[in-house]
Design a protein around this nucleic acid. Sequence first.
DNA 1: CAGTGGTCTAGACCACACT
DNA 2: GTGTGGTCTAGACCACTGC
Lengths: 259, 259
Amino acid sequence: MAPTAPPTADSAHPNEAAAPAFSPLYQQIKSLILQALQAGQWKPGDLIPSEIELAGRFRVSQGTVRKAIDELAAEHLLVRRQGRGTFVATHAEQQVQYRFLRLVPDAADAASQGPAQRSIIDCKRLRAPADVARTLGLRTGDAVLQVRRVLAFQGVPTILEDLWLPGSAFKGLTAERLAAHQGAMYALFETEFGVRMVRADERLRALAADEAAAKWLQVSIGTPLLSVERVAYTYQDTPMELRRGLYLTDTHHYRNSLS
Amino acid sequence: MAPTAPPTADSAHPNEAAAPAFSPLYQQIKSLILQALQAGQWKPGDLIPSEIELAGRFRVSQGTVRKAIDELAAEHLLVRRQGRGTFVATHAEQQVQYRFLRLVPDAADAASQGPAQRSIIDCKRLRAPADVARTLGLRTGDAVLQVRRVLAFQGVPTILEDLWLPGSAFKGLTAERLAAHQGAMYALFETEFGVRMVRADERLRALAADEAAAKWLQVSIGTPLLSVERVAYTYQDTPMELRRGLYLTDTHHYRNSLS
DNA sequence: CAGTGGTCTAGACCACACT
DNA sequence: GTGTGGTCTAGACCACTGC
């Protein structure tokens, strides 16, 4: 990443012409692959060229390409499959429904409590409030799409969430298309708008249900709820979604692993 | 880990005599290093033998040792320092006070809001209740140590937590020794009891403050609090601590990164 | 069978830290 | 300078997948 240029330069290794940065060769390769992903040259689900092919293309050894791909795989941007090849990670296909949702039922066994029932409450375009614009890297007043929905598990409303998306990247997204889409939201973003969420930051706190939350989650005002504010990022750490959720944690909990 | 024995066996590579498992050589090396760590052969903070030394000892190439160490470093069990060597990770020394605490002040800038004020409320030995015994892998009625304490930030009580430790592993731990210890708790566990926490799982939910919580956190009954139940593990995924915390999230939030 | 990723080796050179 | 980890190479063989 850092464009430091130690005396190593190109005397020993033939740095590719297009590589803008120096420092470890495998980092340069990683950058080049990342650029291709960002540019949409290889789309989610695609098979990318083999390590040997890439090694030849970049004029480095297979081991160097391997190390670059290793890191990208560790970041879940690529997926390796022995004997088949390396693929661009995708939310579509595979039934990994909820990419970032950490809420799980208390009963550990009930793995198949069935999918959530999704219902879109609202979906409208509006001018971005200051705080939303700030976190999405927009200007106040820019067009954003706001969606409000409720997720229910086994008939019990459990999650109320609002989400905001940059209007420019999601032209044509309507409540109908959201409702029609069976799978998870991130899969739709990927297939229909070419936006792949890669990473997210969350801020959690406990707060009391206000009138609106109480209504949609069918609890009394003041019920403690888990507030989860999430900012999701595409490639290049570009924020593309702000989500504010309220989770009912009577029969579910937010699971986290620390290491 | 899995003792699968493909025909590869020792025709090509001289498997070490003591190695109980087959499959990738570097995994075996990793296991051997792990065993040494668990046995206390190399203690937290220690410099372990160089890659070349280990390669010779295990009769494999440096690259294979390197891959094993890479994984252990990724799991934060070892720390590599270029030019110096590879060390056993430690909570002592370094000022990384709170290993697993994810609660941070809302004001992002206030990095140095000063250390928390710790006060031990209670510290006693008792027979493990059923639920505590289960998560710690003990039998109901086994001796456990229970500690209750409050953490305050800038004078404001913010965290009330109870923690349970297996009595057998923490003989001689008293409120005095806890109070006397300046640093974080995990550092004390390491230096005084040879117990290093490696990983933890947490379950979060929102709930209303009961009478006791309200008293210690100086809030009114019913105030929404973030409940954090943590199980911390030593080497070998052995549970060694159960912690139940209640966090006041008025001016702080629980931060999480998803990827 | 051919092609892919996965493992392992042996040796080279670089960057860094301590002495 | 010596020794350590960090990078890079070239080539070998294995394991899995799909034709």
